[in-house]
Design a protein around this nucleic acid. Structure first.
Length: 606
RNA sequence: GCGCCCGUAGCUCAGUUGGAUAGAGCGUCGGCCUCCGGAGCCGAAGGCCACAGGUUCGAAUCCUGUCGGGCGCACCA
């Protein structure tokens, strides 16, 4: 809610109190439709019709009479039951020219976990959505005033990693450079799976894979995992995603956090060791009190052979995130491209204040909804309803590739590295065609190509399945990042020219025309869009807003009257020119800020 | 079978704590660079918002049911 709308709301609330409505409903102030009178309006009279036992138009009329116009309001009118406000254009200009600023920090940390890919092969397009969503929502929450910690979980004791490392050993492979390390390992993994399609071969190899798994659990192969991780991190960084801390599954187990979690759970009435039946000898949790509609509400934490399930480790991890357990130690891992330090859990580290959040966001695809519910159930089981409420699963639907589900085994997949390379290549080609003189063309092509890919991942609602199609994801027209970047570059170009000509006249706010008013209203929606994005925990709200903003700017830029430009900036009369320059500057900065919140760069020229 | 999610223009999607005539992009058709960047803009055609009931002054939005589609229901991760 912008300052403009908020002040209108307050004025309405005051007037309502004067009419004897002490507890007014939520007062909805919205922009009036294009061909309705006024700038902003409210339908609050409709809501009050029942309470006041009067027809909405009469209530609206009385309201219009009673409202004491706040600063900037020059007229109040009714239309049917609506109360509409006419704002002083100069006032709107002034409000719209306030530079966008991050909200002040509020207490309470929110911990965002995303990426968390198995360290066993290269990232594919399915992971792309996870990284793009997680990174964007972390940036948005930070801007909206939250303390944010970004965490990437390293499942180094998983079967997939064991298989990859085993495959290298099994085929006697030695890395000789050439292709990226994670891709090279991934090939061995795929080769192993082809071999294991034969049941006999699978059975024969099983003990050796097990052995690797045990060595992983003992932390003996950490160096091998780190090599894979380093290669994967290059991909994430090239996407413009960075993290605060890595947490290794093996550390979670070694430092006794799994044990602590199980002890907490065992002390509750929900966890037991059945002596007979299906779960004889296992440690199980009864989730029926917390998860409805389960045919079999029992969840295995420890198998009857004493090994822990992945879910049990995940519970321990969630408990650690929310401060119920401690004992992890950390040390610096590496410095990331922006200069931000990346820490990692490590047996030889020292205690550091990571975790201990009241709120978590786990970015994981929708197929994991049940295990995510189990995490909440475990928090409920130990009596922490408050923390269960704070545990949010940012569930996103899966990504199709050209209309078909991804499948590593059938080879129906594309790596993130490949996608980026192609995106940048296409961007470079467009630049060569449209702007062959452009300086730093390669760097700009990267910004544009990567931006296109990331935007394609966040512009739709997470719960909708998306289909990755090369032509759409890498489109440089229409509903896409390059459209936004182009709008930004166009503004930058005008400002460059103005600076070159030494134009610096003072804005004369009173000279605003309806064209400026339209653009100003679009700019004023920025804080609301960020706020809503943060509240709903989805970047698509912001992404859609930026498309609107760019459209408003392009429409302004191209406005014509009688075939002549209606809104020239550089050649406008003094005062009006200053105002237009200020708006262009504001547009440019707002667009760049918004793009940055999506992890997308805004080139000065393209 | 049980549970969760989805169904809006030919296609891909916004719009849902209920508000004024349901909006974009792509595609189709027609316009706009002696003017600050045409990766842009303006216009046209295209909708029983899956269907049927209900609640309400008001429903794409909330409730119930039906029909389509996706996903989940392992001592896997």
């Amino acid at each position: 809610m912008t300052g403009v709308k908020a002040s209108l709301q307050r004025a309405v609330a005051r007037a309502l109190r004067g009419m004897g409505v002490d507890e007014p409903p939520e007062i909805d102030v919205q922009e009036t439709p294009a061909d309705k009178p006024g700038d902003y309006g409210t339908p609050v009279a409709f809501q009050l019709a029942r309470v006041l036992r009067k027809a909405p138009p009469r209530i609206a009329a009385e309201l219009a009479e009673r409202i004491e116009p706040p600063e900037g309001v020059r007229k109040i009118e009714t239309a049917g039951g609506y109360v509409n406000f006419f704002l002083d254009p100069a006032y709107l200009m002034q409000a719209a020219l306030e530079p966008p600023e991050p909200a002040p920090k509020q207490g309470g940390k929110v911990l965002v976990e995303h990426t968390s890919v198995n360290p066993n092969k290269e990232l594919h397009v399915g992971h792309l959505r996870n990284v793009a969503l997680g990174d964007a929502i972390a940036r948005i929450l930070d801007y909206a005033g939250r303390k944010v910690e970004v965490l990437n979980y390293i499942d180094d004791t998983g079967r997939q990693s064991a298989e990859s490392l085993f495959a290298l050993e099994h085929y006697g492979l030695r890395y000789g450079g050439g292709k990226k390390y994670d891709h090279w390992v991934g090939e061995a993994y795929v080769r192993l799976h082809r071999e294991m399609e034969d049941e006999a071969a699978k059975a024969r190899l099983e003990p050796a894979i097990r052995a690797v798994l045990h060595r992983l659990e003992a932390g003996e192969l950490r160096g091998e995992i780190e090599k894979l991780l380093a290669a994967q991190l290059e991909t994430m960084w090239s996407l413009n995603a960075e993290y605060d801390v890595l947490v290794w599954e093996s550390d979670l187990v070694r430092e006794g956090l799994l044990q602590q979690a199980l002890e907490l759970l065992e002390a509750t009435p929900y966890v037991s060791r059945p002596s007979g039946g299906k779960y004889a000898g296992a440690l199980v949790m009864d989730t029926s009190a917390f998860i409805e509609g389960m045919e079999d509400p029992y969840l295995v934490l420890l198998r009857s052979d004493g090994t822990a399930t992945y879910t049990a480790k995940d519970i321990a991890f969630q408990f650690w995130k929310m401060g119920l357990l401690s004992g992890l130690r950390f040390r610096p891992f590496t410095r990331q491209p922006s200069g931000r330090e990346l820490y990692t859990s490590h047996p030889e580290g020292e205690p550091m204040p990571f975790g201990n959040a009241q709120e978590t966001i786990n970015v994981i695809d929708v197929r994991q909804s049940y295990p995510q519910q189990v995490l909440k159930a475990a928090l409920e089981a130990v009596g922490r309803h408050d923390l269960a409420e704070g545990a949010y699963h940012l569930a996103y639907e899966t990504v199709l590739l050209e209309g078909r589900p991804l499948s590593g085994r059938k080879g129906h997949t594309v790596s993130v590295d490949e996608v980026l390379e192609e995106a940048v290549r296409r961007a470079r080609a467009v630049i060569a065609e449209k702007n062959p003189e452009l300086a730093e063309a390669d760097a700009v092509a990267r910004t544009v190509g990567i931006g296109a890919v990331r935007f394609a991942m966040v512009k739709t609602e997470p719960k909708k399945q998306i289909d990755f199609r090369w032509d759409q994801a890498l489109s440089f027209e229409g509903d896409a990042a390059p459209y936004l970047q182009y709008a930004h570059a166009r503004a930058a170009s005008i400002l460059r020219k103005a600076a070159a000509e030494g134009l610096g006249d003072e804005p004369d706010l009173a000279r605003a025309t309806p064209y400026e008013v339209e653009l100003a209203k679009a700019l004023l929606r920025f804080p609301e869009a960020v706020q809503k994005s943060a509240e709903l925990k989805t970047p698509h709200v912001l992404a859609q807003y930026l498309l609107d903003l760019a459209a408003a700017w392009n429409a302004y830029y191209n406005a014509k009257e009688d075939g002549r430009p209606a809104t020239p900036v550089l050649t406008a009369p003094e005062g009006l020119r200053g105002l237009r320059l200020a708006l262009v500057r504001q547009l440019k900065q707002t667009m760049a800020t918004g793009l940055a919140l999506l992890g997308i760069g805004a080139p000065e020229a393209m």
